[in-house]
Write a protein that binds this DNA or RNA. Structure first.
Length: 971
DNA sequence: GTAGGGTTAG
């Protein structure tokens, strides 16, 4: 901290980051005691900032040089003869101040004055003085003499506003600034009524009020972004835009809107709002969706709450349509020039909104993303869609493994004449790799490099210009090979990278991953010996290769080679690679799973006491989570000492760990709570009430997701209730989930089935898991309808089919059969070995089912479907034998031909569903155009249709590509 | 706007 008197003008320089007490000491040192209210600091030579708290980035205000001068004078103890604060009572026409504001003014200003030192008082005087200065300086100097009285009142309010913006930094009450703004407008309204001011005066006063609005919005839309602040800003925008139409019930009457141009908002403010709304903090905050909403700007609805992305989209629409965007009339410009200047739209503004919709898996809304692209495409004065925009949605589709939409997006880009850049090419490569289509990725790679181009004749090849692959290109391919278990291909590729000079630390990490997942530990160790970055010395961030070491360590641990894991820890130390939270999580989890409790605790302590040079501690919550998870993993197979310890004893220990966390100020998050809830639910009898209490007890950490509405926690609770045969409570838990997913839904169905309420399960399935095409589209547009629709998966069907078959009635088998075919044909979901096994076991377990023609057909279909799945060695043959056994001893003859055929071709499944790898991982999107078609080969369809523009168009229309404001009213 | 690690779910 430095305090020094620079000159008479620039008085004091304080390092704003210093502690409050130390600031005060410094003031006292200079004979400036009792400066509790204000700290001053110089931010540049010409501007100074007036800050009240040791947190300058939030409360910075730019003030002018005269103020500094003024303050410096007053601090030196010179008392003004001028009284800048005329009392409110003396006004000829008293302003209509809200009661709350009156109270505030009376309490605050008078009491501080009373108990303040003269010096302090003069500080306050100066601030008032400064307000006058600022307002006056907006116009010409001679105005100050003819200044209307309202300016004084506005000055008062502005001071209050400054005060509010400074004091509620912690966000206790953000309505106050809005109240002050409303008071200003109300003041303005009555002024207009009583004084009938000239347009020139109205302009001047409008400018003053506008400035107050800007104070609020620039505070609200500044980093770090916080939801309640952003909402305050939005409310201010709404107030300013619609002040005339604002139904001010709290003020008691209508307001007169500000005069042009102050009833509109500068473009810069809109862009600030856009940036805030699309920021990561606001879009993907951990808040449940109910609180993560933004007030709409529309005045017609009483209060409409929309998602931040939708709010951003509306602003984008405004920018496009120039609605509510302030323009300044300049005489020396032609109208056309003005229009151009005003309408100039930056591609980045569109991309910001696009990114907001597409980037984060939890809040992803692709239909809306397409609307953004459509808006850009349809707006004449907007820049054309660029590879950047396409990269954004390609990445999103790639992440959700939605291969069909990846292809469609590429097609659209091609039709739009987009020339891909290297980033877009890498994005597509990654999308293919994510979808498990390594060969497709390699095909693109060949198309974009010179070698393959000559051979490629199809139009797709022509789409890719000659691009120079970079490290990311190779690393992406490498990742694909690593996941494919192709160690040798990876090694080969990495040698090319080395020779091209494109090897980086990611290459090392990915290569190690490839080796570890192929269990080639020696190779992994070799790679690390040769390619660990050695010149790395920064303590501010993790060593770039810590991931590779973590991967190796984790590989050993999961392979049961704990001693080698520990050796890797030592190796890391030797090579100067500091373990991070992930590393500790892996090792602690592994130790706990093997019942090595004391070493695990030692490791946690070690992690807790290892500080980086910056004094940053390893994030310990995940480490503790791994510990708890390991404790709860039953490990009866090994002959360890704790083998006999009961679940109840473990729960005691786990609860102690949670307490320990809290006492150490390590906040349990939703993972912690979900684990413990699950553990409590596994007790006998299940300790459901305790589990629920625990959630409520820890709920105040809303930002950590601990809540009954958290889907992971709720799912664990549902299962606990299921074990306690309490269907009603399980149902209740389910309804609390903010946006239920298929896992939670499956858990609920399972509870119903366990409690012999199969009928209820089927009803729930009908109610929630609606997969009707038209229905799905409707719900994605409106997204509002009370109940969420859930896309069922294999587990959903397994749960229902299993429960039905256990009823062992003819009707139930019939229903199970139709569910199975519905799953396969309509939803294109592939059965897995568990489902196959469930059905085969039930059908061959004897009793009244399994012997009619239909039963046999069903069993054979299921057996055939199982042929293409990966089974443990010999397991599938066992299933075949069992089924054969039934067939031989059964009266139905229907199988004879079928079985013969099946026996011959058993290794080549004839179902087209299984022809393509990875098809069952696809997202719902494909049904939008793959629809009712029973021919399952999507790939073929995509290729077939790529030349057929009409079907492409209808697809695009269905996705909203050509539709600007479906679902959105233009403002 | 593009590449890499851990904790959860039937």
């Amino acid at each position: 901290m430095s305090v020094s008197i620079v000159s008479t003008e620039e008085l004091i320089v304080i390092d704003g980051r210093s502690k409050r007490t130390r600031d005060r000491i410094a003031f006292q040192h200079h004979g400036l005691e009792d400066v509790d209210e204000y700290y001053l600091s110089i931010s540049s030579a010409t501007y100074a900032t007036l800050v009240r708290r040791p947190c300058p980035h939030r409360t910075q205000r730019i003030i002018s040089r005269p103020l500094l001068l003024c303050i410096s004078i007053s601090l030196c103890g010179i008392v003004f003869g001028w009284n800048p604060q005329p009392s409110l009572q003396q006004r000829s026409s008293p302003p209509r101040l809200s009661p709350s504001l009156q109270l505030y003014l009376n309490n605050h200003l008078t009491t501080t004055r009373r108990k303040s030192s003269p010096r302090h008082y003069s500080l306050q005087l100066c601030e008032s003085f400064q307000s006058r200065e600022l307002f006056a300086s907006d116009n010409t100097e001679q105005m100050s003499s003819t200044e209307p009285p309202i300016m004084y009142q506005l000055t008062q309010l502005r001071d209050v506003l400054t005060e509010c913006l400074k004091t509620h930094d912690d966000g206790v009450n953000t309505t106050q600034p809005i109240d002050v703004l409303k008071d200003m407008l109300s003041l303005y309204t009555s002024w207009c009524f009583t004084e009938r001011p000239t347009s020139q005066l109205r302009f001047k006063v409008g400018a003053a009020i506008d400035q107050a609005f800007r104070m609020v919005t620039s505070e609200a839309f500044s980093t770090p972004y916080r939801l309640h602040w952003v909402n305050t800003g939005m409310e201010a925008l709404q107030l300013q835009l619609h002040s005339g139409r604002f139904n001010a019930t709290t003020i008691g009457g209508r307001l007169i809107s500000l005069q042009q141009p102050y009833n509109e908002i500068p473009k810069g403010t809109w862009l600030k709002a856009l940036r805030a709304l699309t920021s990561k903090d606001i879009i993907s905050s951990q808040f449940p969706s109910s609180t993560r909403s933004i007030m709409a700007l529309s005045p017609r609805d009483d209060l409409q709450w929309i998602t931040p992305s939708n709010a951003a989209f509306r602003i984008l629409q405004r920018l496009v349509k120039s609605k509510g965007i302030r323009t300044f009339q300049r005489k020396n410009r032609t109208q056309q020039q003005q229009q151009q200047q005003q309408q100039s739209l930056d591609e980045r503004d569109f991309n910001m909104v696009l990114h907001a919709y597409a980037a984060h898996p939890h809040t992803r809304h692709m239909h809306a993303a397409h609307r953004v692209m459509a808006l850009q495409e349809r707006t004449v004065h907007a820049p054309p869609l660029s590879p950047v925009a396409y990269s954004i949605i390609l990445r999103a589709y790639g992440q959700s493994k939605d291969i069909v939409n990846v292809e469609m997006t590429l097609l659209h880009a091609q039709r739009n004449g987009v020339i891909p850049d290297i980033v877009m090419a890498n994005t597509v490569l990654d999308a293919y790799v994510n979808c498990g289509l390594l060969d497709k990725a390699q095909e693109i790679f060949r198309s974009m490099t010179s070698n393959g181009r000559l051979e490629s004749t199809d139009e797709k090849g022509g789409f890719w210009p000659l691009l120079r692959p970079n490290s990311r290109t190779y690393n992406t391919l490498l990742k694909g090979m690593a996941e494919d278990g192709d160690v040798h291909g990876s090694m080969q590729l990495s040698r090319i990278m080395l020779s091209e000079g494109l090897w980086d630390e990611i290459t090392t990490n990915t290569l190690v991953k490839a080796a570890v997942s192929a269990n080639e530990y020696d190779l992994a160790e070799d790679i690390l010996s040769n390619h660990t970055i050695s010149e790395f010395s920064s303590t501010l961030q993790d060593h770039p290769n810590v991931e590779a070491y973590t991967e190796l360590l984790d590989g050993y641990a999961k392979d049961g080679q704990l001693d080698h894991s520990l050796r890797v820890m030592q190796l890391m130390q030797k090579r100067g690679v500091s373990p991070n939270a992930y590393t500790y999580t892996c090792i602690v989890g592994a130790l706990a799973r093997s019942n090595k409790i004391r070493p695990a605790r030692k490791m946690i302590n070690y992690a807790a006491n290892t500080l980086s040079a910056e004094g940053k501690r390893v994030e310990l919550t995940p480490v503790y989570n791994a510990f708890i998870s390991g404790l709860l993993t039953d490990n009866y197979s090994t002959g360890s000492t704790r083998q006999s310890s009961s679940h109840a004893a473990i729960i005691v220990e786990v609860l102690e760990v949670v307490q320990e966390m809290q006492s150490m100020n390590i906040h349990p998050n939703f993972v912690t709570v979900a684990l413990v809830v699950d553990g409590l639910g596994r007790c006998s009898p299940p300790r459901c009430n305790e589990a629920r209490e625990l959630v409520l007890h820890l709920e105040r950490n809303a930002s950590l997701g601990v809540s009954l509405s958290n889907k992971k926690i709720a799912t664990a609770l549902i299962q606990a209730y299921g074990r306690a045969n309490d269907v009603d409570s399980a149902m209740e838990s389910f309804t609390r989930i903010a946006s239920a997913d298929v896992v939670a839904f499956n858990a609920l169905l399972d509870v119903c089935c366990r409690c012999d309420q199969v009928k209820l399960a089927l009803d729930l399935f009908k109610k929630h898991a609606s997969y009707d095409l038209s229905d799905k589209q409707k719900s994605s547009v409106k997204a509002k309808k009370g109940q969420h629709s859930i896309l069922p998966d294999v587990v959903t069907y397994t749960t229902l089919i299993s429960a039905l078959l256990q009823l062992k009635t003819r009707a139930a088998v019939k229903r199970a059969t139709s569910l199975y075919s519905e799953m396969k044909n309509k939803l294109q979901i592939s059965p897995d070995t568990i489902l196959i096994d469930t059905i085969l076991t039930a059908m061959s377990s004897g009793g009244p089912i399994g012997y009619t023609d239909d039963d046999i057909k069903f069993t054979l279909t299921v057996l055939k479907d199982g042929a293409s799945l990966e089974w443990e060695k010999g397991q599938y043959e066992k299933r075949k034998k069992a089924v054969r056994g039934i067939l031989v001893g059964c009266s139905s003859e229907i199988w004879k031909n079928d079985e013969y055929a099946f026996g011959l071709v058993s290794d080549i499944p004839d179902d087209p569903l299984f022809r393509k790898k990875g098809w069952n991982k696809m997202d719902s999107g494909f049904r939008l155009w793959g629809g009712g078609d029973d021919d399952g080969d999507i790939q073929l369809q995509a290729e077939k249709r790529s030349g057929d523009s009409s079907s492409v168009d209808s697809f695009l229309a269905s996705k909203g590509w050509n539709d600007i404001d479906s679902g959105f009213r233009l403002i």
